[in-house]
Design a protein around this nucleic acid. Structure first.
Lengths: 251, 251
DNA sequence: CGTCCGTTTGAAGTAGTTCAATTCGAGTGG
DNA sequence: CCACTCGAATTGAACTACTTCAAACGGACG
């Protein structure tokens, strides 16, 4: 699983970054934009199944996802895998390795992923000269923590059915916010193995649990492409509702 | 479960903060120290069982734990509870509510806890004028995330026995680092109900699992006070080892 | 001395795992 | 166009790790 490869130019200038236009994301002021433009080095491409970051890595690049899906995970020595969270457009990757000694988890591409790479050396400059962006980074870290809290609650205390409903509702909601525009057939690019490794369940039981959600008309399942049909229904089953999220920072 | 109450003065001046002296924590330079001294408002005291912060709170205080144990948790509507992590001396509480709209979890005191309170209004000043401290806050958030990742792996993929061993080894290690000096009888102030709610297990099964660890000579259990006897043994059972942690920032 | 909280134990039940095949569709080479 | 392969989903059946119910025990404390 090699690292992502650089895309040939033309690279997108930050002024025209597609994410900025989406109303989910807060816009930069001109001063911030000027800095971020210099902060950005290149674009990278990761194909499905490629590792974007590997646990133990010492000085990983710092990325923001421009398009596509990935997931963060950890693996035990005997191969048991736990998916910790998913990364979608606007999410940062590699922050941990830029703040602490080394990465404690891996990140893998689920679909084809395009990434914005930043210059590690300028990371301290960001904190020194751009407090509003530094605050945004803390905001982003805090949001990640709150998602993890909810996942831990889910894996620790919800039943298989509740967990599955929660996960799909959660991902569908995030995906709709981050992708924006794709209102039509809105697919989650997961296999049942991914779902199982996220929920902490076996593949077989995950299959049987999902089947019930399918038969109940809550979701549709095609190969590597789930659709949520009845979002409200999933919320009800999960006993969960997405937190109101207003405009959100990204870098 | 009311809020923590202010302690009568004398309050400890930051110059003489007991945490600063411990080698686990990095020291401030004089400029940082001057700011933190103005940032600090008061000390608070929370008795065992008291809520320090409640989910949904909009503008919680920002605290650092000076002494004692607490835990972060979430509760489902029907009462199922998941403990997310524990807070020990040097840990921040309430950061989430200062960055995002509202707190997504609660914090409760496990033992008597003393807290340092900061002035919320100066939080932005910290980012503006003290980038090194802003960086520390990101560091702290990032460390919290990495602990949560490991817990999620544990709850999702480890067996009951492995989970229990992991949790006790984890807490013992953190506690030794944060308490420092208390080398003798080093107790973890948990009930089996806390352990159960952390591991995502029932109380009964937790009891039976702990009993095996006790009978195996790995730990000792007194009422509300566990002792780790064979740390190395727990590491082996858990298939886990604490990450090397050098000096660590705190505020 | 009684009460309360935390721990302990046994027994019955069930949600989830593991093992073992089978199906299905898409892609590949002949 | 067909035979082959391969990853993903599906299904049944046996097993077991964990839950739930129910009761009792022990120590601390007023």
């Amino acid at each position: 699983m090699a690292h992502p490869k650089p895309i040939a130019p033309p690279r997108i200038p930050c002024q025209h970054c597609p994410l900025r236009r989406r109303q989910t994301f807060r816009d930069f002021n001109s001063e911030e934009l000027a800095f971020v433009s210099r902060f950005k080095i290149a674009e990278m491409l990761a194909e499905p199944g490629m590792s974007i970051i590997v646990e133990g890595e010492q000085n990983p690049s710092l990325y923001t996802v421009l398009s596509g899906w990935g997931f963060r995970h950890k693996i035990l020595e005997d191969g048991r895998r736990q998916i910790l969270n998913y990364v979608l457009p606007g999410d940062m990757i590699g922050l941990q390795g830029n703040v602490m000694a080394e990465m404690q988890h891996s990140v893998e591409a689920l679909t084809r992923v395009t990434l914005c790479t930043f210059e590690r050396e300028k990371f301290h400059t960001l904190f020194r000269d751009h407090p509003s962006l530094a605050f945004d980074i803390t905001w982003i870290a805090s949001r990640e923590e709150s998602m993890l809290d909810e996942h831990l609650l889910s894996v620790g205390r919800r039943s298989a059915r509740e967990r599955a409903a929660y996960l799909l509702a959660f991902l569908d909601t995030r995906s709709r916010a981050a992708m924006e525009g794709n209102t039509g057939d809105h697919q989650l690019p997961l296999t049942q193995q991914h779902v199982a490794d996220t929920l902490g369940l076996s593949l077989v039981h995950t299959n049987k649990t999902l089947r019930k959600l399918i038969d109940g008309g809550l979701i549709r399942w095609r190969d590597r492409g789930t659709q949520v049909i009845d979002q409200e229904g999933l919320y009800r089953v999960a006993g969960w509702r997405p937190p109101a999220e207003s405009e959100r920072p990204f870098i």
